[in-house]
Structure formats: structure tokens, C-alpha cells
Design a binder for these strands. Structure first.
Lengths: 111, 111
DNA sequence: CTCGTACTTCGACAGTTACCGTACTACGAA
DNA sequence: TTCGTAGTACGGTAACTGTCGAAGTACGAG
């Protein structure tokens, strides 16, 4: 079974988390994981980029500590590390999602 | 009198604001403007970079809408656009400052 | 008017980021 | 065991970022 590295809660760096969330595609992924409670495979996101670029964005989020990725057969189940993020940087995630909703409205990913 | 361009409240982009705050030097500037109420000239920050690099970071913050810069003689008075930011992206700034304090503790700018 | 101070502008540069396509691996199903 | 699906790894690339120093500008003070 393949496994993937995740930072511990107290290893999360604000620089990295903010940089991860500064990208519209990655924010879209995080928002979507936040709004529905279940896990999602990478492929279900229909991002406007190639598969290899998707991998890159998911990895960036995982390495920042924003999402958790776990293999399940040939797929990866992605979930938001909301508890960990909230414990480490209280309120940050919520304020970003709120901001995203305010600004984005319908725009989603026009990038 | 020289003047500097600032985005309107509703022109502020989440991408840009998050990218601005993702840099430790810029976050340091913003945090310091937040913790003391008065305006500050650029030179009072003693950043660990050259003068031209300072200019670049201050400009990045201003163009994102995070700070306001106004000439006063040969100096520039910098202030945090807290009201505007809070109106546009409620809670965002505070959660970033909280996160900065949690993580940074004493570190300030070790970058 | 001349000088110093405070900041900007410019060009250069190294490093990083976001992106792609091709080739690959790991797993489940047939 | 062979095939399809899901995602990774790699090499390349264009654009962006953070940095510098040198030269320039705008203002206040003398």
C-alpha cells in the first residue's frame, strides 16, 4: 500500500498554508472539500488543467497540511484537515472560505 | 505632491491579498502596523533587505490593498487598511495576525 | 540654491512556480 | 494475466518573485 507524507499539526507553516491558499485552483479544491463532507478522489474535481498539474496542486495542498490524501485502491481520497488547521491557526480557514464566497460568488474557477 | 494608487475596497482580490500576506517580511510589516496605532515611515521598519527590496514589498502590500501609503514630505506614512479589509474579507486579517503570533512567537523575521 | 534624506525606478539575476506532455506505476476487474 | 483507470515522476519551459546595486526624483532644511 502506497502512503503519502503529511506534516504534523505543529509542523504546519503559515507561509506555506497561505501560499497554498493563494492559488485559485487550490482554494477551489479546499472550498469544495469543505462544503461537502465526504471524501473526493482527485479526478472528481474537473479542474481546468492537465492531470499532472492537478497532481502538483494536490501535492502542494497536502504538503502544506491543508488536505489529507489517502490511497483507496487506485484512487486517492482527499479530505480537508479542518480540525488540524483550526487547532493550529484558529479561524484562518473559515475566513478564507468566507472571503472566497464573498468574492467568487459564481465565478468558481475562471482562471 | 506625489500620490500613490490604491485599489478600492471592492477591487481587492483574495488571490492578491493572500499572496501579499504569504511573505514573512510583508506579514511582519502588516503585523507591526496592526499592533501600533500610529503611522510609520518605511525606514522605521529595519527590514533585513535592501532599500529597493523594501520598496518592492511595501508596493506589493499597497497594491493588494493591505496598506495605505501617503507621502508626507520625503517620507511615506504607512497604515493598515484594517477597516477596508475587514469590510471586504471579514475576519481574514485578524486570523492571519493570530496565526502569526501563534507560530512566530519571538521569531519575528528570521527570514 | 545646494545638500541630505527618503524613497523609486531600472536592469539584472537566481530561484521558484505553474504548467505541459510523455512515460511510468499500482491497483481492481474481467 | 491482461486491461483500464487513477494518479505519479520526470524533463522542459515560460512567467513570476524576491533580491540587489546604481542611478534618479522629490521634498525639507540650511
Amino acid at each position: 500500500m502506497r502512503t503519502l507524507d503529511h506534516p504534523e499539526r505543529d509542523e504546519m507553516r503559515l507561509d506555506t498554508v497561505l501560499a497554498a491558499l493563494a492559488d485559485p485552483i487550490r482554494r477551489h479544491i479546499a472550498c469544495r472539500l469543505n462544503s461537502t463532507d465526504d471524501d473526493h478522489a482527485c479526478a472528481t474535481f474537473e479542474l481546468p488543467v492537465s492531470k499532472s498539474t492537478s497532481t502538483y496542486h494536490f501535492r502542494t495542498l497536502r504538503e502544506a497540511g491543508v488536505i489529507r490524501q489517502e490511497y483507496q485502491g487506485t484512487s486517492i481520497m482527499n479530505s480537508l484537515r479542518k480540525d488540524d488547521l483550526d487547532a493550529r491557526f484558529p479561524g484562518l480557514l473559515d475566513s478564507v472560505f468566507t472571503a472566497q464566497n464573498i468574492e467568487g460568488g459564481a465565478a468558481v474557477i475562471s482562471a
